[in-house]
Design a protein around this nucleic acid. Structure first.
Length: 295
DNA sequence: TATACGTGGTA
DNA sequence: TTACCAAGTAT
């Protein structure tokens, strides 16, 4: 079942990407699969500009999975700093350990092996397989979903995500040649990030405007179901968790509940935060107090 | 499938 | 200022 010719959209994307690709450090030719893996986990729900410095420091300090696995998780959490979703620091440490234990310290190529690693889901596994190893897999992130919704689906915004549907949609755009497919994956993400943006698309600069179904339809407004609005951050449990973590990173000794009290007026909310962080393994509590995980 | 999960940039 | 958005994953 081979498809006919590669879609013209693919060629247009590849041509555009050759010029327009941002020189992101993890795109350099000599970057290791581990460094790509680290970048992908850091980039989950996190803007490029905030990731770059943390990634540089991380790779310098832990150039291999073994180097990270040799240190306690607490150090990973501290190095994560304020990137957000600190569970990812734990996941990355766990994944490094799993890579050492199950794969001899080498990041696996195989999609199922990648998927089995902690913190690596459908997007990240394919991103690593495609970008680090050049394997031919569809890679679908939030940018890709938006480009597909507009250019192919004729809708202003993507509908509710469905991994199976999204992957199938991207598959129809991919050339057979793995190297070209890799470029189309990267170019589609880049287009969504820099041109086909969520709030202010710059259609005048779009390399596939001629082929865009949304443009052809006259840019109809999105009618489908809306994502639930993100809960307010100020005063949220999330914010309190973040404040607790900030203390935990700074204090290199067990800290008592009383010492944590200043981070939040609401004792019940502070309790929820500490309990949640403990359940997540980000905080360990014992008779001496609370601390970051040393093991 | 819906929800929780950090933090900061941008309009 | 508020509201939306951000290279998602686990449960």
């Amino acid at each position: 079942m081979s498809r006919p010719t590669p879609p013209p959209i693919a060629d247009a994307l590849i041509g555009w990407f050759a010029d327009a690709a941002r020189p992101l450090p993890w795109r350099a030719a000599d970057v290791s699969p581990w460094a790509v893996l680290v970048s992908e986990i850091m980039l989950q729900q996190t803007q490029v500009a905030r990731v770059v410095p943390r990634w540089e420091a991380w790779i310098e300090r832990w150039p291999t999975p073994a180097a990270l696995a040799a240190e306690p998780p607490s150090e990973a959490v501290r190095a994560w700093d304020r990137l957000g979703y600190p569970r990812r620091a734990l996941w990355l440490h766990r994944a490094a350990t799993e890579i050492v234990e199950r794969h001899g310290g080498e990041v696996p190529h195989d999609l199922d092996a990648l998927l089995a690693l902690q913190g690596i889901g459908p997007y990240t596994a394919r991103a690593i397989a495609a970008f680090a190893f050049g394997l031919r897999h569809p890679v679908v992130d939030t940018n890709t979903r938006r480009v597909l919704a507009r250019a192919v689906g004729g809708q202003g915004e993507p509908g509710p995500p469905s991994t199976a549907r999204d992957l199938a949609a991207m598959e129809t755009l991919l050339p057979d040649d793995p190297a070209s497919a890799r470029l189309v994956n990267a170019a589609t993400m880049e287009l969504g990030a820099t041109v086909c943006a969520a709030r202010t698309p710059r259609c005048g600069e779009c390399p596939i405007a001629e082929a865009c179904a949304w443009r052809r339809a006259g840019y109809p407004p999105y009618e489908g179901p809306r994502r639930a609005a993100q809960a307010r951050f100020a005063g949220s449990d999330r914010q309190v968790r973040g404040l607790v973590m900030r203390e935990m990173r700074a204090v290199h000794r067990p800290i008592t509940r009383a010492e944590l009290a200043p981070v939040c007026d609401d004792a019940a909310q502070l309790g929820r935060a500490i309990e949640g962080l403990t359940a997540d393994g980000l905080v360990i509590g014992d008779a001496s107090g609370y601390r970051l995980p040393e093991r």
